[in-house]
């Protein structure tokens, strides 16, 4: 057990702060603040509590305030050679990363962000503290509200405290790069952590046992590099992994995953009419007055 900076009292205070009336937006590190549209002007801003509430390394789960930065969390977990599979963008908070729901460039190896959240305590539009999921690594007790909250941009509830699945920090973690066929690598290597490709150069992140990493690197025939390339930040597009083959222009693509980072903005992805209607009904059920993060929408 470590931390203790956040307790039930802090959650209650946060719930009170959110209250039951008036537009309110939850602010994290503002690293993805524009995703889904700008928050309406005049919206009251709140911040979720920060700090680790409970961490038992042998459980490989951690309970922390949604306002905790991913970097702080990883630093604490790192003492026990663990981490969370959340992208540690500069200043990003756990709650913010979950609310936006975008995975980092290690998604190929670590899985999507949505699989990391085990339990959430959030403040509902009525200002009530609500619990979703449970604090254990396997749980099918009731409906999966956690999955619904991840990527909801705080429009269904404001995350206050979360329980996250941890993962061991790999023994070694090395980037390689060269003019390689990324699609071939993806098929021939066993579970690489990341393959990035800009149409010419391929960057490859290999993690695990040193001998395995060395053997896979030898197979790939690529020299080691310091790290991944800078990602264009103008736009982000989601496609089927095999569609990446047809990409042209300037981009960095996450091979095997299907995310394309571009300099220019991307249009919002289309959704079937049936799914649009379900999105609308869910928003209406959870936040009928539209007070949570007004202006931001998962369909924008």
């Amino acid at each position: 057990m470590s931390g203790g900076a956040i307790n039930d009292g802090a959650l209650a205070t946060f719930a009170e702060e959110v209250g039951a009336d008036g537009p309110v937006a939850c602010v994290g590190g503002r690293t993805q603040w524009s995703v889904g549209g700008a928050v309406e002007a005049g919206t009251r801003e709140v911040r979720a509590p920060a700090g680790i509430a409970e961490y038992e390394p042998a459980e490989m789960v951690v309970r922390c305030g949604a306002g905790t930065t991913v970097a702080d969390l990883d630093a604490a977990l790192g003492e026990k050679s663990q981490c969370v599979a959340l992208p540690a963008w500069d200043g990003a908070t756990v709650g913010g990363v979950l609310a936006v729901g975008r995975s980092g460039i290690r998604r190929l190896g670590y899985g999507p962000v949505r699989d990391t959240l085990l339990e959430a305590r959030y403040v509902s539009a009525e200002g009530r503290l609500v619990k979703a999921g449970g604090p254990v690594v396997k749980n099918v007790s009731g409906f999966d509200l956690c999955r619904l909250l991840v990527g909801s941009l705080g429009t269904l509830g404001l995350l206050a405290q979360v329980v996250l699945r941890c993962r061991p920090v790999p023994a070694v973690s090395r980037w390689f790069a060269g003019e390689l066929d990324p699609f071939e690598l993806r098929l021939r290597l066993h579970r690489p952590t990341s393959i990035l490709w800009d149409g010419t150069t391929t960057w490859l992140l290999l993690e695990g046992h040193p001998d395995d990493v060395a053997a896979q690197a030898a197979f790939a025939r690529a020299p080691e590099v310091d790290g991944p390339p800078p990602l264009p930040t103008g736009g982000r597009r989601s496609v089927r992994p095999s569609e990446l083959r047809a990409l042209t222009g300037r981009f960095v693509a996450e091979v095997g995953v299907g995310i394309v980072h571009t300099a220019e903005a991307q249009p919002p992805a289309a959704l079937s009419p049936g799914a649009v209607e379900l999105n609308r009904r869910i928003k209406h059920e959870f936040d009928p007055s539209g007070r949570l993060n007004p202006g931001r929408s998962v369909l924008a």
Binding site: S103, G151, R236, A269, L278, N279, V298
Partner: peptide, 9 residues
Amino acid sequence: DAEPAGYDL
């Protein structure tokens, strides 16, 4: 695709 739009229905 990697990140379908909307809530995770």
